[in-house]
Amino acid sequence: MNLFTILISTIFVNNYVLGRFLGVCPFLGVSNKTETATGMGIAVTFVVTLSSIITYIIHHTILIGRLEYLQTIVFILVIAALVQFVEMVLKKISPTLYNALGVYLPLITTNCVVLGVAILNIQAEYNLIETIVNAFGASVGFSLALILIAAIREKFEIQEIPKALEGFPIALITAGLMSIAFLGFNGLV
């Protein structure tokens, strides 16, 4: 599969949030403001791409052959360590962003997109370059969906919404409509 196809496919056609249901928790949880959404998107892109490279290397050098059943444990530990690292770096470089993301930063560890992409890279038997492109595309797709829904939810602040639908329900219904829109990308590749 050529690299451009992978990129278009992961960002639009099989968007990881709207099409594959990965990363829904932060998608609904962090999307109240576009600034936090953008910050989260950047952080996730960094973690996903870097962790995909590291897990790829670990899988192909250590695990392959006899230790494949340790994949889940090893991958999630790598991700947890990486997120700790990003937390420390972010605290030094941009304390404002660090505070804005709050508890959602360590929660990147449990973001399905990170572990999901790492596992899917191995399943699809991508080489290292394809892995990097896939990881980057997946996280850009996630960020795109996140920023889009944050922009919409900002408008909800000044709307009259039935009390029962406030918060998650209306966000989910919005996500459903966005998902229908993204279905229109079918046939692009």
Partner: peptide
Amino acid sequence: IIFLMPPGAFILLGILIGIFNSIRN
């Protein structure tokens, strides 16, 4: 078929939570 696809999932879950919320309220 839309209900088997992603949009259906999002919308149905949203409605279910909304119903649950309204009962709780």
